[in-house]
């Protein structure tokens, strides 16, 4: 089984703020992490490899420092990585990102069986890149999976896809693209041996000229959406804080408040 895991390095969102004067993102000094949901995708890929054999290949697009996130995946146990890094890829929206990732996978890992992604990244929260990638690669998709069984002989996969009241069991032929939610598994921590060996594993850096794709569809040029303005959300306003001294009186205060607000 050749399993591709697409990952993203994201800023620790708790630290991102808008500069009230310039109205731009203040990202300086904000630490970067591996997107949390991607860890579940990697863990599942490793489990599939442990069960059926094969290779786990990490693919990411991002600036040179995204290598830190790659190293974490390799330390967890992935075999090698492909890092798409070029100024020409910068400014990509979800469509251009999905196009670039899809082109790279098609060109460099054409015989893949499964692509795993975290359902969404915490910075943009769009959940669009995996699905758009599935369409570019003409794959079936199963989004939001909490359980996966791969049948390499039957060339199929059965996955539990989360719904609003439970889950549906979906069967698809291989190759397939799956997106992981946290119910899927419990990601392992990198071992000391893993961390030490990660540096010796192969990470291939790919630039725009290495890709067969239409350069007009990369980065900013290939992005149909444009952020025209960013602004700070409306502050919530200062709330009322009460110290409970008599539960019944407190309950009455809450009910009165909800009544005034028209909620009950």
């Amino acid at each position: 089984m050749i399993i591709v895991v697409c990952i993203k390095q994201v800023p620790e969102i708790t630290e991102v703020k808008v500069d009230p004067k310039t109205k731009t993102l203040m990202r300086e000094g904000v630490p970067s992490i591996l997107n949390p949901l991607d860890e579940f995708a990697i863990e599942e890929a490793l489990r599939i490899r442990e069960k059926h054999g094969g290779e786990v290949i990490i693919v990411t697009m991002g600036p040179p420092q995204a290598n830190e996130a790659i190293l974490k995946c390799l330390a967890m146990g992935a075999d090698r990585a492909i890092h798409l890094s070029d100024r020409a890829f910068a400014g990509a929206d979800t469509l251009a990102t999905a196009y670039t990732l899809a082109k790279a996978i098609k060109q460099f890992i054409p015989n893949f069986d499964v692509i795993l992604c975290g359902k969404q990244a915490i910075d943009g929260d769009t959940a669009q890149v995996p699905v758009e990638m599935a369409e570019w690669l003409n794959l079936t998709q199963i989004t939001g999976v909490k359980k996966v069984e791969v049948d390499p002989k039957g060339r199929k996969v059965v996955a539990h896809r989360e719904t609003d009241e439970g889950y549906e069991v979906i069967e698809s032929k291989l190759p397939v693209l799956l997106t992981a939610i946290k119910e899927l598994n419990e990601p392992r921590l990198p071992t000391l041996m893993g961390i030490l060996s990660a540096k010796n594993k192969e990470t291939r850096v790919i630039t725009a000229v290495d890709l067969d794709g239409d350069t007009g569809l990369f980065g900013l040029n290939g992005s149909p959406t444009q952020v025209v303005e960013i602004f700070a959300p409306k502050p919530r306003g200062k709330g009322t804080i009460i110290l409970d001294e008599d539960p019944v009186a407190t309950a009455k205060k809450i009910i009165q408040f909800l009544f005034e607000k028209g909620v009950i």
């Binding site: 708790t14 703020k17 808008v18 303005e229």
Partner: peptide
């Protein structure tokens, strides 16, 4: 975006 820390048009 960014968990509601910023808004984008």
């Amino acid at each position: 975006a960014f968990g509601g820390n910023i808004m984008a048009s």
